[in-house]
Simulated assay, not measured.
Amino acid sequence: LYERVFRSHRDLFLWLLILGVVLCLIHLHLRRVEGYLREVNQALGQLTENTGHQIHLSSELQPLERRLNLLERQMQTQQEGIREQEQKKNDLVMYLAHDLKTPLACSIGYLNLLLDEPDIPSGLREKYLRIALTKSLRLEEMVQEFLEISRYSLTTVVLHRQTVCLNRMLAQLIHELHPVLANRNLDCSLESAKDIRICCDPDKLQRVFDNLLRNAVQYSREGTCIQVQMKTADGQVRISVTSQGEPVDRDRLDHVFDPFYRVNPGGSPQGTGLGLAIARQIAEKHGGRIDADSTDGKTCFTVTLPLKEDRAAG
């Protein structure tokens, strides 16, 4: 029996033995891999549930453990930022909604007085009308702020490019601001060596510079001059808007482009805090950027844009 079965088929039994050992090793390896996959699955579940606990894996999976823990920290930071922005937005909406009542009630009150008292002297009638008009204009501004919040939340910036002259655009914006400048006893100068043309979305770019100029008017010291300068270098144009007033410290300056953040040196909240955030988004869509600096009582916002059309950015 030994001769017929084992000795004559020795090679076959040897191969079967080797095959059995290999299968056992493969089984053990697959069990080990299954254990690793189970650990990774549990770690991913912990990551998606955002438990906040440190992820621990086997020593063989240490590189993956470090990456997952880094990803968890990044997700927590992003979620905290989203919650903070949402809270700022909710607070701002509450502030605007509460303050809508005041100008509305005031306008209605003075208009009712005019209707109920037809024999009011002309001077007093004009005074009441001016007050009602002022409150109505303030109401319009606040409604516009609500619309701005909605646009920022629900839309993305889409560019419609054409070639425009930056000098004329800025000169027109400065001219339109003359009444506001006169009320604050301010002046505004435009310095540029030559006409500069770029391919951009003029409507959206006007919004960027209009926002920067109005911010400069709002925070300038009375009797000073707002300086607008344009320079070209290295295929780019840099437009700086410099105002003189209370300096902005670095902590606040680092957040001026954050949505719903409002620099508020005077103590009274003004605007939605979206102007600079949207301006930065528009500049980046054009392939450029906006930088801010404040030293020696001067605050400068610099817009850098490519002179040539950047189709990838649009």
Rank of each mutant, 00 (worst) to 15 (best):
S107A: 12
K88A: 13
L213D: 03
E309L: 09
N215E: 00
A132D: 10
S136I: 12
P306I: 04
L133C: 02
C225F: 02
A43K: 14
G52E: 02
V180T: 09
S243F: 00
G81L: 13
G20I: 11
V263S: 08
E140S: 15
L92R: 13
E176R: 14
M75K: 12
P265V: 02
V93A: 01
G266Q: 13
A105R: 08
T304M: 11
Q227C: 13
S220N: 01
V263G: 05
R4K: 11
P63C: 12
R130C: 01
P306S: 05
N90A: 15
K89Q: 05
S268E: 15
L100C: 06
L100D: 07
L61Y: 07
G275M: 02
H286V: 10
W15F: 14
L92C: 12
F209G: 08
S153Q: 03
L16Q: 09
V158G: 07
P118F: 09
A312T: 05
E222P: 04
C165A: 10
E126S: 06
R130F: 03
L274F: 01
E86T: 04
F301M: 15
V164E: 11
E72W: 07
F301W: 15
L147Q: 14
P265H: 05
L124T: 12
Q236R: 15
C24G: 15
I55N: 01
H98S: 12
D210Q: 11
D258L: 12
V157A: 01
R280P: 07
I198M: 11
V248A: 10
T302V: 11
S58D: 14
L68V: 13
R262W: 04
N185R: 09
S294F: 03
Q162F: 00
G45T: 11
D293H: 10
H29C: 02
R125K: 07
L139H: 09
A132S: 10
D251W: 14
E34M: 02
Q54P: 02
G288Q: 10
R168W: 02
T232K: 04
R238P: 08
R38A: 09
A132Q: 06
L44H: 03
T242Y: 00
V303I: 02
